[in-house]
Nucleic acid binder design. Structure first.
Lengths: 190, 190
DNA sequence: TTAGGTGTGTTGATTATTCGGCATAATACA
DNA sequence: TGTATTATGCCGAATAATCAACACACCTAA
């Protein structure tokens, strides 16, 4: 991966991604062809193959790109002794979603990719929740396990709802709201 | 001019034109540089010179393109014995404006290019108004001359107002409105 | 069955765009 | 005034995108 991608590459990838996201709103992935994507993106069909092997490869690479960014953000905000890193992390996560809103909408929303969503949840568990658990001295029992699923799924639900309702609130506002929900949830446990 | 322009050329020209139009909304032409245009259009600065000599050359070529299309439309709807060609001509003219709305807005609107607007007026006079005059047996006196300026400036005014108010009406609706105004004007003369 | 239409994956040649750098001109500012 | 700083117009090399064409697979209807 080049440090700075060529301008042309950036533009065509953007066009292709937006076309794919638009198509995914109307039909499932297995009914989407290369020709449809290249037509809607207004690029030559051959150009598609310069970047992706086929449509599935494209979705795969796009998912990985978003996942890597998601992962990086979570990595840079691992909670150490308290939860003061929670808010800035949420802000960055909402920003990431808004920068990839069309694609994120179809990946996370209904008819989304459950496996992809699950990967996101796993990251949060391993990087954040385990630390919170240790920090607050919470036993790793069934109750905590359910609590974890409750919180994380709740966050994903907020993400999806925000994206699908036109992102009227700013990422900052959403981060505030989400932080409040998470913290009150934690307080009931400890 | 190639029959079908390369996809890349279409896209870069569109990007440059939109950037220029956007800049013209904020400052006069002589304060706009190549770098600003290429930055806003998200193209390489060198690419600009593949199409235009400088910013003035760009405006010139863009004006000529629109003017040629304007001229063609008027040519294809020269009124012969009556005014039945007026309405379809107006529809096409409003369509032309909507297809080039950003640029047309700054060329025709306030702070627009008076010389360009005048060229448009001349075309209407020579191609349309002279025929109307003969058809209706109107004397070519001062009164008719003023009438001509009144009608044509009025049309330009409608164009500008429509573009600057967000083009809420369809080209068809605008053509109906404009035709009515013109015809009632003519009826007062003959 | 065959024939016609459509999408796929790939190729080779061509072209437009990118990028970095250059010398110069214009502008700002101490 | 002189001296940075910035924009201009242009260049060569590299490369991404285009286009037309191909063989192939799939489908559908005659």
């Amino acid at each position: 991966m080049a440090l700075t991608e060529d301008r042309r590459v950036r533009k065509t990838k953007k066009a292709m991604t937006e076309a794919l996201a638009k198509l995914l709103l109307t039909k499932p992935l297995n009914n989407i062809g290369v020709r449809e994507i290249s037509d809607m993106a207004d690029i030559n069909r051959g150009t598609f193959y310069l970047h992706y092997r086929d449509v599935y490869d494209m979705v795969d690479k796009l998912q990985n790109e978003i996942f890597e960014k998601f992962n990086d953000i979570v990595d840079n905000h691992e909670p150490k002794k308290n939860t003061e890193e929670l808010f800035p992390m949420l802000v960055e996560l909402f920003n990431l979603l808004s920068e990839n809103s069309e694609l994120a909408k179809v990946l996370i929303g209904k008819n989304g990719d459950a496996a992809f969503v699950d990967k996101l949840k796993q990251v949060i568990r391993e990087k954040c929740f385990v630390n919170v658990q240790k920090t607050f001295g919470i036993k790793n029992d069934d109750e905590f396990n359910y609590f974890y699923h409750y919180i994380v799924s709740g966050c994903i639900g907020i993400f999806s709802a925000w994206l699908n309702s036109g992102m009227k609130e700013t990422p900052l506002e959403m981060a505030e709201l989400t932080e409040k929900l998470i913290l009150t949830g934690i307080s009931t446990l400890s």
